[in-house]
Amino acid sequence: MAVYTGPACRRCRALGVKLFLKGDRCFTDKCAFERRPYPPGKSRNARRKMSSYGLHLAEKQKAKAEYGVLERQFRKYFEEAKRQKGETGANLVVLLERRLDNVVYRSGMASSRREARRLVTHGHIRVNGHKVDIPSYLVRKGDVITVSDKMKAKEEFKRRFEENSRRMSASWINVDLDNVSATFVDMPTRDDVQPPFNENAIVELYSK
């Protein structure tokens, strides 16, 4: 399973947008993007002029970094979004939001998508009572996400789950703090998600 394993904060600085890739650290004064809001290897006064292609490519890189996917898999999501009815860009956003690791993150069970991916691959996540260890699994409307009994018994996990769920509340996910579970109640819309990238620029890039 291919996944980017390089410095997370460096990606935010290079792309010029805060993607909250480091979880709790991103909400503190230790956040590298807040301390050095300019590209790595450049002085803060350096100017960069990007071409139209470069601007479109940057939007795709933001989306890939945000959801933790590489080019081959991202291209598959785009092709699937193009086959579906409606706007391709909006369909792409919804497909990415339906990833199991993203739903685990959005529900508050993890403080970052990286941490969510680890929970899934290590077998701690259940979908409708069945263990699913594939981060790219697409969650459907009505699916109930829970954790293993081992994780549920940890007081530290439950404490962080409660804190994260308040911070990252999503209208399309219903969180049950008492039972340590989350229900994917409805498909989100593009306006619900408000992604930190321009999905239409990605569509234009792939259409060239």
Rank of each mutant, 00 (worst) to 15 (best):
A2Q: 01
A2S: 13
A2I: 03
A2L: 11
P7D: 05
R10P: 11
C12G: 03
R13D: 02
A14E: 15
A14M: 12
L15E: 12
G16W: 07
V17C: 06
K18M: 07
F20R: 08
F20I: 08
K22P: 03
G23R: 00
R25M: 07
F27W: 13
F27K: 11
T28F: 13
D29Q: 15
A32N: 02
R36G: 09
P37E: 06
Y38R: 07
G41R: 11
K42P: 02
S43E: 09
S43F: 09
N45A: 10
N45H: 12
A46G: 03
R47A: 11
K49D: 05
K49W: 05
K49V: 10
M50L: 13
M50R: 10
M50T: 02
Y53R: 12
Y53H: 08
L55I: 15
L55A: 07
L55F: 09
L55R: 12
H56L: 10
H56A: 15
L57W: 09
L57Q: 11
K62E: 01
K64E: 12
G68V: 08
V69W: 02
L70Y: 04
R72I: 04
Q73K: 04
F74T: 03
R75S: 04
K76Q: 02
Y77G: 06
E79H: 13
A81G: 01
K82Q: 05
R83T: 07
Q84W: 13
G89P: 04
V94C: 00
V94H: 00
E97C: 12
V103E: 04
V103C: 11
V104G: 01
Y105N: 12
R106V: 04
G108H: 07
M109F: 12
A110P: 07
R113V: 02
R113I: 00
R113A: 01
A116F: 09
R117S: 03
R117Q: 04
V120P: 13
V120T: 15
T121H: 00
H122T: 02
G123P: 09
G123C: 14
N128S: 13
N128Q: 13
V132W: 10
D133T: 13
D133V: 11
I134L: 12
P135L: 09
L138C: 10
L138N: 01
V139R: 01
V139H: 05
K141F: 02
K141N: 12
K141S: 07
D143H: 06
T146N: 01
V147P: 00
D149F: 05
D149G: 15
M151K: 14
K154H: 08
K154T: 11
E155S: 13
R159D: 07
R159H: 15
R160T: 10
S165Q: 03
R167A: 10
R167V: 10
M168D: 04
M168F: 15
S169Q: 15
S171W: 00
W172I: 06
I173K: 01
I173R: 01
N174P: 00
V175P: 03
L177A: 11
D178Q: 14
N179H: 11
V180A: 14
A182Y: 09
A182P: 05
T189E: 00
R190P: 09
R190H: 13
R190S: 14
D191K: 15
D192N: 08
V193Q: 04
P195D: 03
P195E: 02
P196W: 02
N198P: 05
E199A: 11
A201V: 02
V203I: 00
